[in-house]
């Protein structure tokens, strides 16, 4: 993931949102969000990550005012989300978007420009520019009915950007795109961010997150399990130090492995060992004494994947114990 300089201002701040759904007509309520809180800083690309059904889309719909929370509140650009005027600074691409298929690409963007309050004189140039940005210049005159899935996703992104918003919310922006399309949209997101826009992105594709996002929140079963940037991965469980050695005699390695509880990867010429911080001096001394060379010593970073899988596991365990507790109470 990418480093960036901190700013203190929040673009989005979410405070204890709770959402229940009533799946049927009955009185049964299903809690989908259990009081989630997190912040998105101005100018960052924020990844909202979680497994299927975790509550990502639900959170986004709450933020967009499409559904109402049972409890909690949220602010976007310092406005309560119940207001509607500040939305001129917010863009939104829904999950699996459907659009007015009787409109052409240009008519479609023209309509959104009008409801978003883009002045008449600016519309044509803006629409042309956006169509070019999302790679649809050739299809502006065609009805959306004849668009492919990837083309719809692109026009959806254009629609979200029509009024040049400050914060852009994207629910799975890469879904339905081919590899070239994914790369184009990634580049577009980076360009938008460089231009100063804050991007909030729902996804479960970790490689996209690693390439794009400055910070993530991981949501599992309606609860936030992790929030932070790469620097926080260090402390998120898997600590220690990675040491790379060369020309290490096998017997000496075995001895040290036993003595210091090393985690060793690789054999022969190049050996990677993960060691607890307190045992680092012993390892280095031992290795040098045995005639090995120390190639590098770096603090161990958990990968996003590790952090993600840990979060999911933690979520499942908590869920299991909660269910048992409930079962016992009955």
């Amino acid at each position: 993931m990418r480093e960036r300089t901190e700013t203190s201002e929040d673009a989005v701040s979410v405070e204890g949102l709770v959402k229940d759904f009533r799946p049927g007509f009955g009185l049964v309520r299903k809690r989908v969000l259990h009081g989630i809180s997190f912040d998105v800083k101005r100018g960052e690309i924020f990844g909202f990550v979680g497994p299927n059904g975790a509550g990502k889309t639900t959170t986004l719909k709450l933020l967009m005012g499409l559904i109402h929370p049972q409890e909690g509140s949220a602010r976007i650009l310092d406005h309560d989300i119940r207001e509607s005027e500040f939305r001129r600074h917010v863009g939104f691409l829904p999950e699996n978007p459907y659009f007015y298929d009787y409109l052409t690409g240009v008519e479609f963007l023209e309509f959104y420009a009008r409801v978003s309050g883009v002045p008449r004189g600016e519309r044509p140039a803006r629409i042309e520019q956006l169509l070019a940005d999302v790679g649809l210049s050739h299809a502006g005159g065609e009805r959306l009915r004849n668009y492919s899935k990837g083309m719809l996703q692109r026009i959806g992104i254009a629609q979200a950007l029509i009024h040049d918003p400050t914060v852009v919310f994207l629910d799975e922006p890469m879904s339905g795109l081919d590899p070239i399309g994914r790369k184009e949209i990634r580049d577009l997101i980076l360009r938008l961010n460089e231009g100063g826009k804050t991007i909030f992105m729902n996804t479960h594709i970790l490689s996209d997150v690693e390439m794009l996002c400055h910070r993530v929140a991981i949501i599992v079963k309606g609860q936030i399990r992790f929030e932070g940037g790469p620097e926080d991965f260090l402390s998120a469980g898997h600590g220690g130090v990675d040491v790379v050695l060369s020309q290490m005699p096998p017997q000496a390695l075995l001895d040290l492995e036993e003595q210091l509880e090393l985690e060793v990867r690789g054999q022969g010429e190049r050996i990677e060992a993960n060691v607890a911080e307190k045992s680092l001096p012993d390892l280095l001394r031992g290795a040098l004494a045995a005639g090995a060379e120390v190639v590098s010593v770096t603090p161990h970073r958990a990968s996003l994947e590790t952090v993600f899988l840990d979060a999911v596991e933690q979520g499942n365990q908590d869920d299991g114990s909660a269910n048992r507790a409930e079962g016992g109470a009955r």
Partner: peptide, 14 residues
């Protein structure tokens, strides 16, 4: 039903 309303209501429109 077709969820076109999602994008419309996310605009500055009550």
């Amino acid at each position: 039903d077709r969820r076109t309303i999602y994008t419309v209501l996310s605009k500055p429109l009550s």
